[in-house]
């Protein structure tokens, strides 16, 4: 019996479900197995995987200043005191 009736368009729809961690372990295993049988889909998957990784690594992450956090902390403490 044929295990997969492969459709590139159907598989491609699921690429980001896999990359975004939205699949169950079983779904992911089935997806990756099917992906391994089609070079064209595999290539598309790799492109999207690299793109997501690129975003994660390259988008600048800003950190809050310690002074601001301490100010906010103080404001919250004061607000609790006033609500006493």
């Amino acid at each position: 019996m044929e295990k997969h009736r492969h459709s590139c368009s159907e598989l491609i729809k699921r690429v980001y479900l896999c990359l975004d961690g939205e699949m169950s372990p079983q779904q992911e295993e089935d997806f990756l197995e099917e992906l391994g049988c089609c070079n064209s889909c595999l290539e598309k998957y790799d492109i999207e995987k690299n793109f997501k990784q690129y975003l994660i690594e390259k988008v600048q992450r800003r950190k809050i200043s310690v002074v601001l956090v301490n100010n906010i902390r103080q404001q919250i403490k004061d607000s609790f005191r006033m609500s006493d």
């Binding site: 368009s9 492109i47 999207e48 793109f51 690129y54 390259k58 988008v59 600048q60």
Partner: peptide, 24 residues
Amino acid sequence: DDSYIGFVDLRQELFQDLIGDEIT
């Protein structure tokens, strides 16, 4: 609906040299 399938095809060799400032 999930009828969309088209990805803009952006090859790694095209964007790998862009720096963080450009992506941001």
